[in-house]
Design a protein around this nucleic acid. Structure first.
Lengths: 195, 195
DNA sequence: ATGATTTAATGAATACCGTTCAATATTGTT
DNA sequence: AACAATATTGAACGGTATTCATTAAATCAT
């Protein structure tokens, strides 16, 4: 059964390479099969269809994203500084992983069936964590209460997603982490308690 | 030449119907041709390819969106209230035009080639207008200066796009204009001058 | 009004794609 | 070694967007 997992990985690896340069539409199963050194039919023993294979690609990267995020959060006990870190880390990670960014932001984040995929559950683990941070911040008094924490999360993630998306559409021509301080500033002003 | 425009419209109308219920992938040229009562080959005399036809659909709706927006802005001379109106109108319009919302948010907003299309220029006209409002607000002192107006725009549009996108992915099950006040509140706090 | 010429419309043919499945090869078991 | 179970294969299938030689319509010149 380790052998099966290995071949599965091998196919995902090939798929990542092909989907990394072509869009979902333009990526051909035949090319993936060739790169993975298996017959086209074999793919369908490991994945339900092209979409299922596509959705399986970002599973590991997302895992990595979550784990590293928790690591970066270590030692920070203030709610606002956790949000600061979140903003920085989010931009930094996608800057370092542009192929993953493209697949996630431009193709998956916009698909109804992705929500039902296993990879989405891992994304959800991350957004759950963000919600936790916000609620903790509200409890400790640094983030203003009286505003739905879900809404606050929407604001934060909305800005970040938009920023990464724009960057990708502009062919990654500028530094994604630039203006980090100003981004933090506007967001934090909107959500912190007024002293 | 009015006859040509008429047939063009007729094809766009058929395309809007088909793309309105199916995704770009699942929509078939043959079905569009049938609905428009023309041969498949004829489509290619009016549009370069399937994508070109697809991108032509939201041109009128976008025009409508811009015009109505300017109408709603009439009589409002305060920067912050203009932003308020923008937020309300944006959510309201997509609530009333869910098919257009789906095409624009889930399919076009995420495509590199869309940026090069003519319809994108009209979107740009809208975002240019938003920037103007922000700069006016900064000049009059209601929106805090010292922050890049482009960044402020990113925050506003980021939140709104995210909100509409989430709503679409959740199958439009709740009221998009709900929590309007809180959304305004968080955004405005972030961008207004501190008194 | 008629023939000539340009312009538009057609739909069968083409090339390519994702997916299936009967046949084949590989692995595991006794 | 013989058999059963499982995994792999790639040709075949039904479907797609796009092209292009042919046909039809419209426009123009005489």
């Amino acid at each position: 059964m380790s052998k099966k997992d290995l071949k599965r990985q091998q196919i995902i690896q090939a798929a990542a390479e092909v989907f990394g340069t072509r869009s979902f539409q333009n990526a051909a199963i035949s090319e993936i099969a060739q790169k993975a050194s298996v017959a086209e039919g074999t793919l369908y023993q490991y994945f339900k269809n092209k979409e299922d294979l596509f959705f399986s690609i970002p599973a590991q990267k997302t895992e990595e994203f979550c784990e590293e995020f928790n690591l970066h959060l270590e030692g920070i006990y203030d709610g606002l500084n956790k949000i600061r870190k979140l903003i920085w880390y989010y931009l930094y990670f996608f800057k370092m992983n542009p192929a993953y960014a493209r697949i996630l932001m431009l193709e998956m984040r916009v698909s109804k069936s992705f929500i039902k995929s296993g990879t989405y559950d891992r994304i959800k683990a991350f957004t759950d964590r963000v919600l936790e941070i916000i609620e903790e911040g509200q409890a400790e008094g640094s983030i203003r209460s009286g505003v739905d924490p879900y809404l606050i999360r929407e604001v934060i993630l909305g800005v970040l997603e938009h920023r990464v998306t724009r960057w990708l559409l502009k062919e990654e021509k500028y530094d994604l982490t630039g203006h980090y301080n100003e981004v933090c500033d506007v967001i934090l002003r909107g959500i912190k308690s007024s002293e």
